[in-house]
Design a protein around this nucleic acid. Structure first.
Length: 582
RNA sequence: GCGCCGAUGGUCUAGCGGCUAUGACUGGGGCCUUCCAAGCCCUAAACCCGGGUUCGAAUCCCGGUUGGCGCACCA
């Protein structure tokens, strides 16, 4: 049994992850998060919010998961997010059309559907299964389609990423941030991809959770004001060049920027932030690296792109975060499709005096003379040079028609104008997180089976499954356990439970089975602390606190126990300082 | 999507044409119990779905669903 199997088996048994629709046989690519799973996931998301929204100041928005066609035409998903399929007319089997002809044409994956059909017909390619005739090639789009409204309502798609919501809201966001770069927005939510064959459990899902930030920055200034925070941070960098060597470099982010390995400071800062976040939720530092996209795998519009990869037992290095400088590609694409300028006005620190050639047609005369064509003529005149305008009769061509404009109704001059700023299209830095993959990695890295001494100091050792989750992400934070199932212990235990609940901690009360069994149950789900109420409690109002990782105990007064636990879980207070060691 | 292999209580598993379906762990109730899966009693809980072959199918055959692996795909 490998670690994946062990983790998934436990996750299923204890209520972290379940196959969706199991009652009806299940469907690949969908998972339910059980009571503990959804709590753990929510805690990871909460730390992400704390990191990106609270600390970085990139406010969260919430756009619909259903999008209209225009959005995905602009994003390129309607046209590009698909594979060409081709069905056999005889047996109905579907094939990748480009694969059917890749022995015939070298560049099969670059051909259009029509070109593929042509190659298939000219070479008499038949169905590989039954030798039947093949139908026409069509695009199988990886987006889930849906209908908005009844009848012939408009075509909608389930979003394949949350990013587009932030791009579409760009002008509103710019206004919200009072037109000052850099600014950013974030979104945590579900995205959908109709994968042809999802595998690998929660690593590849048809419905998954993304956390994305779109940070809009000045294309001329990619420094980061807070770069010093991560300048000396050492990260595992697997650059394009390092991949050729096959060796991961451990390097400070400042050095990586200096050497030009990471394109610029802003991107390096984002790598530092991702490195910080992943370790905070419990990813082991040695099993984390940043891999640079090779030149040929990077999208053509991107300047630089790094994936955070986590090493897992079964799947090897899994990509969990993509961090890219997408330049102005997305804003330009939406500007083109929406016919709306998506730019921001940036004021210069000092206004510039610019000398420029200005043409001023006299519209009061141009109008009556040329009627409806006047506007087009004026535009044409503005584009002309001094030489042309100095002629007595200025020739203008509008809609293929040559017209003569009298010299006296056009004024032009060299003018010096004050320009105090310009419209710029920001560049986008996009950290894009796959939360489900991080969730699984967190569990796998925390999962441990260790041998511990058995009862009564016998030679026998026994296995203990313990999830060493970070205290901050553990779903159950405190277990309250009366040592024995007796009324006189149960009552004070219930009182302790109430006190801890009031502090907002998730507490689980458990009096079923022996104390050892209850400790093990809580170890398995990663509960960091267990409070045990025993007979000394009745004497002096103290309880024991047991530490999950060391199995050590300290004794502390009930008074203030909830505050103490809160500090240990969230503020990093030492376990040893919590009470008298036992 | 293709090929190969699998699917039995919550979990892991026995079964190889005669089933009233093994066992362990877990869960629930109780007895006992003063700190790390102890013991005893009671109890709940399963043949993935649909066809076929057969007197008889968990078992053999076909199809589907689903899981794993390889190919392909994907970031």
């Amino acid at each position: 049994m490998d670690k994946y199997e062990q983790v998934i088996e436990m996750a299923k048994r204890r209520g972290f992850l379940w196959n969706s629709f199991e009652l009806y046989g299940g469907t690949a690519g969908f998972y339910d998060y059980g009571p503990l799973g959804s709590t753990l996931k929510r805690r990871i998301e909460q730390i992400w919010r704390e990191t990106y929204v609270v600390q970085e100041g990139y406010m969260e928005i919430e756009a619909p998961t259903v999008g209209i066609e225009e959005v995905f035409i602009a994003s390129g998903h309607v046209g590009g997010f698909s594979d060409p399929l081709c069905e056999c007319k005889n047996c109905g089997e579907a094939f990748r059309a480009d694969h059917l002809v890749d022995k015939i044409v070298a560049v099969a994956d670059t051909l259009s559907d029509k070109e593929l059909d042509k190659v298939i017909r000219e070479n008499n390619v038949r169905c590989p299964e039954c030798e039947g005739e093949l139908g026409e090639t069509y695009e199988f789009n990886l987006m889930f389609k849906t209908q908005i409204g009844p009848g012939s309502g408009r075509q909608g798609y389930m979003r394949p990423e949350t990013a587009q919501g932030m791009f579409v809201d760009f002008l509103r966001l710019a206004r919200f941030y009072r037109d000052k770069l850099p600014f950013g927005a974030t979104q945590i939510g579900k995205s959908y991809r109709n994968e042809i064959s999802p595998r690998q459990g929660v690593i590849r899902l048809r419905e998954f959770t993304q956390a994305e930030a779109e940070i809009f920055i000045d294309p001329n200034d990619k420094k980061h004001t807070n770069f010093s925070r991560f300048a000396d941070t050492l990260v595992n960098l697997y650059s394009d060049e390092a991949q050729d060597r096959g060796i991961v470099d451990k390097m400070s982010l400042a050095e990586a920027v200096e050497k030009g390995i990471i394109a610029h400071e802003f991107l390096a800062y984002q790598i530092g932030l991702t490195n910080h976040f992943l370790q905070r939720v419990g990813i082991v530092a040695d099993k984390l690296r940043f891999r640079q996209h090779k030149k040929d795998e990077m999208a053509h519009y991107a300047i630089d792109c790094w994936d955070a990869e986590i090493e897992t037992d079964r799947f090897g290095w899994v990509e969990v975060v993509g961090i890219a400088d997408r330049t102005d590609y997305d804003l330009k694409a939406h500007a083109a499709v929406s016919k709306t300028e998506l730019s921001i006005y940036r004021e210069y620190s000092e206004p510039k005096m610019v000398t420029q050639f200005v043409v001023k047609p006299n519209m009061g005369k141009l109008g009556p003379l040329f009627k409806g064509k006047a506007k087009d003529i004026a535009e044409a005149l503005k584009a002309m040079s001094v030489e042309e305008l100095e002629k007595d009769n200025i020739k203008v061509t509008v809609d293929g028609e040559e017209l003569i404009v009298p010299k006296e109704i056009v004024e032009f001059a060299e003018e010096t104008v004050k320009i105090s700023g310009e419209n710029i299209i920001p560049h986008v830095i996009e950290p894009s997180y796959g939360i489900d993959r991080i969730f699984y990695s967190t569990m796998e890295h925390a999962f441990e089976e260790e041998m511990v001494a058995g009862k009564d100091d016998t030679e026998e050792e026994e296995a203990r499954i313990v999830m060493r989750l970070k205290k901050e992400v553990a779903p159950v934070q405190v277990a309250v356990l009366p040592l024995l199932t007796r009324e006189e212990l149960i009552t004070p235990a219930k009182n302790v439970e109430i006190q801890i609940k009031q502090k907002g901690l998730l507490v689980s009360y458990d009096d079923s089975g022996t104390i050892g069994r209850r400790y093990r149950r809580n170890d398995e789900i990663g509960t960091p602390y267990s409070i045990t109420i025993d007979y000394d409690t009745l004497e002096d109002n103290t309880v024991t606190i047991r530490d999950r990782d060391s199995m050590k105990q300290v004794r502390a007064p009930i008074e203030g126990i909830a505050d103490l636990l809160y500090e240990m879980i969230y503020i990093g207070r030492d376990f040893e300082s919590a009470g008298k060691a036992l």
